[in-house]
Write a protein that binds this DNA or RNA. Structure first.
Lengths: 140, 140
DNA sequence: CCAGAAACTTAGCCCGGGCTAACTATTGGC
DNA sequence: GCCAATAGTTAGCCCGGGCTAAGTTTCTGG
């Protein structure tokens, strides 16, 4: 085994939370019009203080904008990331369901897995969703 | 969507490193007879200091035993965790390959994904490896 | 219109998991 | 047998992502 298989897996996980947040923020905006910190508090089941910290980091990193006591908004970059993240999430989730996993488990597992799925694997999953399983008789 | 989908995904990641380590330690022991810190240093591409910290934590948590300047050994618990982890890893990796993903990508992705795959999903993957794809004509 | 509730902020803490730098032990080759 | 090289340790630092506690702002309904 090549010893450097890691590297990606490791440092990536810094941005996993960022992806989860922009996704949640986009969802909240889509569903309620705006996103307030309290939405994230309940969505992630963390405290207000934690949400504050995280949102500050996201702002520092150019993914969101927010002013004190104002709703949280996504920057263009944030929106792009959210859209991409949501798409990936959806594919993984649908794929798991297609695999025969319960919807509930698919929801939970896809949440964790989505951040570790490479483009190549994602494409393989997409292919399954669109064209069936690899060895299926799609030849005819 | 239920708002509590997270919970598991989140705090679990504390032990992801632990699993990676015991797996690596077991591998080193299997391959070289003993596991020295330096093996982990090169395997994870981190510094000696980091390995030391982590191993100390593992020891605190009852997964390994080690004395200064001595090789690292797995406790019974550590061995169990390593075995379980390795099995899971192997299933995910094989599954990805079966999906049509390149061996290299399968190796990388499985590394990250394995920690987020539930028992149910793992079983679904195993089923595929043993019995083919869900909708395949295994009925006839 | 104003009090209390709800939302938000801030400060200060903790742990995990990285790092560098400086030091100590062990080992092997000469 | 000694000395360099390799291995390991320790101290001190950083950031992410959690928390509590205490305070501030905003909103709302009576």
């Amino acid at each position: 085994m090549p010893p450097k298989t890691h590297q990606r897996t490791r440092s990536d996980h810094a941005s996993e939370v960022a992806e989860d947040y922009v996704e949640a923020i986009a969802d909240a905006i889509a569903q309620r019009g705006v996103c307030r910190a309290v939405d994230l508090v309940s969505h992630f089941a963390v405290t207000h203080a934690t949400v504050n910290n995280t949102v500050a980091r996201l702002q520092r990193d150019g993914l969101v904008t927010t002013l004190p006591y104002q709703p949280i908004e996504l920057t263009a970059t944030g929106k792009r990331l959210a859209a991409q993240s949501r798409k990936r999430h959806a594919i993984v989730q649908s794929f798991l369901e297609r695999l025969g996993v319960s919807a509930q488990t698919a929801a939970i597992d896809s949440e964790g897995m989505e951040h570790h799925v490479s483009k190549e694997t994602l494409n393989a999953m997409k292919r399954v969703l669109e064209q069936g399983w690899p060895s299926d008789g799609e030849s005819t």
